[in-house]
Computed example of a mutant assay.
Amino acid sequence: MTAPAAPAYAVLRVHAKKAKTMAAISAASEHHMQSEPSPHHDPRSGAPLVLHLAAGKTPYQAARHLLQGVERRNRETVLCREVVLSASPGYFRPGREEQAGVADPERLKAWTVATLAWVRRQWPDQVASVVLHGAGRESTPHCHVLVVPRVRADGGCKLNSKALFDRARLRELQSSYAEALAPLGIRRGEPGSEAKHSEVKQFYGVVQAAKQMPRRAPLPPAPKAPMPPAKLSVRVWSKMLGVLGIESDHDRAMRAHRQQLATWRQEVRSIMEQNEQAWQTLRAAASFAPLARKGHHAPREPLLAPPAPVRLQPRHQPPR
């Protein structure tokens, strides 16, 4: 019986760190455009896809354009907020959630269109940029959105981040985004959930640890068994010597082969133990803490699955 598919949830996250300087906006822009190499980006998968720019050629230029002529109260005024939009991996690759970097093209297109339309309706005068990090570059597709929190006041515009991103407004954004994705079968998460996810630094630490681990040691080839004598006369002579208790050349070769085979099995077993120890070390690092939600803990399986066992089997069995 096929297990029911896991529900897909809308993902909306507003970065807690607020951009109060142009340098912070520049750093966010470089991250969105992935100007600098990152350990979890595949450079062969192409550049991020820019879906919207208010002006210019980069998110930084777009945000700077929207900030022109806007009243700024002091240095602590928030210039820009960053929003990340996505959905559960099960939506992009149903039944293949564990295959990071994979997404169904039609599902990705439908989610991208719905997300971009929602962003433009939600912040028609404030959205500076929308950049898609699609499948291949990231584990799960998502959009980075830069929002300049400018509001109209006294015939002009001023910056007011609280008016757009206070606690009540954040709950409304979660519900509104989920409603926009409802036709795709994506629902809203549990309101008021206090789920705590593993730190991003911990995840990147595991990625770096995996890259720095030595390659899995290859298993040496099994020693080949000596071929029996080709000539009938030699085979008959060997059997006669065996009856008399005398060791023939072929018998000596077979005895040496058995010794080599025993040495080979011991070497392979040692290599497999080393590989298993390295695997357990990486697996322990990837076993993140379980999610904590409203006072109870839900167990969570490790991110990595154990490797398939390797059976010791020589390439050529010696003839009996």
Rank of each mutant, 00 (worst) to 15 (best):
K18G: 02
A19G: 03
A19F: 04
K20L: 07
K20R: 15
K20G: 06
T21A: 11
M22V: 10
M22P: 06
M22S: 10
A23T: 05
A24E: 15
A24Q: 14
I25H: 07
S26K: 01
A27E: 12
A27P: 06
A28V: 04
A28Q: 10
S29F: 07
S29A: 15
S29T: 04
S29W: 00
H31Y: 14
H31A: 08
H31E: 11
H32V: 09
Q34W: 09
Q34E: 15
Q34L: 13
S35E: 13
S35F: 04
S35Q: 11
E36D: 13
E36A: 14
P37I: 06
P37S: 09
S38H: 15
S38E: 15
P39H: 02
P39K: 03
P39D: 02
H40M: 11
H40N: 13
H40V: 13
H40E: 13
H40Q: 13
H41N: 02
D42Q: 12
P43T: 01
S45R: 15
S45Y: 08
S45L: 12
S45D: 12
G46N: 00
G46C: 02
G46S: 08
A47W: 09
A47V: 10
A47S: 11
P48I: 04
P48G: 03
L49S: 11
L49V: 14
V50R: 05
V50Q: 09
V50Y: 05
H52C: 07
H52R: 06
H52M: 00
H52W: 02
L53F: 03
L53K: 03
A54F: 08
A54V: 05
A55T: 05
G56C: 01
G56F: 01
T58W: 11
T58G: 12
P59G: 07
P59M: 06
P59F: 06
Y60M: 01
Q61L: 10
A62P: 08
A62D: 03
A63P: 03
R64Y: 01
R64N: 10
R64K: 15
R64M: 12
H65R: 04
L67H: 07
L67A: 02
Q68G: 08
G69F: 07
V70F: 00
E71Q: 12
R73H: 12
R73S: 11
R73M: 04
R75G: 12
E76P: 05
E76W: 09
E76G: 14
V78Y: 04
V78Q: 03
V78L: 01
L79Q: 02
L79S: 00
C80I: 04
C80A: 05
R81A: 00
R81N: 10
R81I: 02
R81Q: 10
E82N: 10
E82M: 09
E82T: 10
E82C: 00
V84E: 08
L85P: 09
L85Y: 04
A87W: 03
S88Y: 04
S88W: 01
S88V: 03
P89V: 09
P89M: 04
G90K: 09
Y91G: 07
Y91H: 09
R93Y: 05
P94Y: 01
P94W: 06
P94F: 01
P94R: 06
G95R: 05
G95D: 08
G95A: 06
G95H: 09
G95N: 05
R96H: 14
E97Q: 14
E98A: 14
Q99F: 14
Q99D: 15
Q99T: 12
Q99A: 14
Q99Y: 13
A100F: 07
A100R: 09
